[in-house]
């Protein structure tokens, strides 16, 4: 773990530590925060703290960018609502958009790139028709990529809106179909929170299960510092609201087969952003990858990252299928 990334985590955990940072520290913290899409969270977290004038201006820039990004995210949600008007099935918002629309603390400071939605798998054809009719288009024209998504993935190939240039990811399960774990997406949709205004998002326990599955069971930990910050904020808010939340979370995690991942995410989040409890060797290895960015915003620790890249693929697919996939991708260049 680099000094710069650790400093950023430290300031997010305890904003009053900002008083001890040098100019060089600040330069590196802001660079890492930008690279990890956490500069909005940093700006929100440091509101009211005494910081150097130049830092105050950089954070102000981040707030302006954040306001725009969140307005745009809300508008994409509105456009999607209209596309699915009277569809008769829930269209569940996931990740950043859900946090923002649900008014959660995890949504404060959150930059949102793509819009992610989850809907019942049997409704995919209808969803595809509605989105295409409302102006979204396929991003990838490649037949193999299209086949790859439809045969093995947990989401449709990405769609982009032709006028607004914004992407939407349509999920129908939580993890790729080839993954050895199969969280119960049907249950997540059935038990989601459906608001009167037609907006749906996952219930608190499932929201955390989804964030954790996305961070630890799928993917190579790229962008995981922000994912972990999301998870930490969600856990803190839900525990504050419901003292028995952990019981509900663990029972839900067991149902989805995610218990070990939930416990690990809780340990990592508490270590980095909470009480600072010590970690075992395996968690420390994860932490090294989560904090693998230097003060210039450059990714570091290539061997660790490569190991996590391989791990991600091994989790996703059985070895023979993986070999076939990587061979096809390699042959296509």
């Amino acid at each position: 773990m680099t000094r710069a990334a650790s400093l950023l985590a430290g300031v997010l955990r305890a904003p009053e530590q900002a008083a001890h940072l040098s100019v060089k520290d600040w330069t590196e913290v802001i660079t890492v925060a930008r690279a990890e899409q956490l500069v909005g969270s940093l700006a929100i977290r440091l509101a009211g703290q005494k910081v150097p004038e130049a830092v105050r201006r950089r954070l102000n820039d981040a707030r302006i960018a954040l306001a725009h990004a969140q307005t745009q995210a809300r508008w994409e949600v509105e456009m999607t609502q209209r596309a699915f008007h009277s569809a008769g099935y829930p269209v569940v918002l996931l990740k950043g958009c859900a946090y923002i629309i649900a008014g959660l603390e995890a949504g404060d400071g959150r930059f949102v790139g793509d819009l992610d939605i989850l809907l019942p798998r049997r409704q995919l054809d209808d969803a595809e028709r509605r989105l295409l009719a409302a102006g979204w288009e396929w991003v990838k024209a490649d037949a193999y990529d299209d086949h790859y998504y439809r045969q093995w993935m947990h989401e449709l190939p990405p769609l982009i809106h032709r006028a607004r240039d914004r992407m939407i990811d349509v999920h129908h399960t939580i993890l790729p179909l080839t993954h050895r774990l199969e969280p119960d997406a049907e249950a997540m949709i059935r038990d989601c929170v459906r608001r009167d205004d037609g907006i749906s998002f996952l219930n608190p326990a499932d929201m955390i299960c989804h964030a954790v599955a996305h961070m630890l069971a799928d993917g190579d930990l790229a962008g995981s510092l922000r994912n972990l910050w999301d998870i930490y904020q969600l856990l803190r808010e839900f525990r504050h609201e419901d003292p028995d939340f952990d019981k509900e979370l663990l029972s839900r995690a067991a149902r989805h087969g995610l218990t070990a991942y939930i416990l690990q995410a809780d340990r990592l989040a508490a270590h980095l952003f909470g009480d600072g409890r010590p970690l075992g060797w395996r968690d420390r290895w994860f932490l090294r990858c989560i904090l693998a960015r230097d003060g210039w915003g450059k990714k570091t620790y290539p061997i660790t990252r490569c190991a996590f890249y391989l791990r991600a693929h091994m989790l996703r697919m059985p070895p023979l299928m993986l070999a076939r996939h990587l061979f096809t991708k390699w042959r296509k260049g």
Partner: peptide, 12 residues
């Protein structure tokens, strides 16, 4: 002067 820059650039 020593100050936090607006932008960081890398030529790699």
């Amino acid at each position: 002067l020593v100050a936090v820059p607006n932008f960081t650039v890398r030529l790699e």
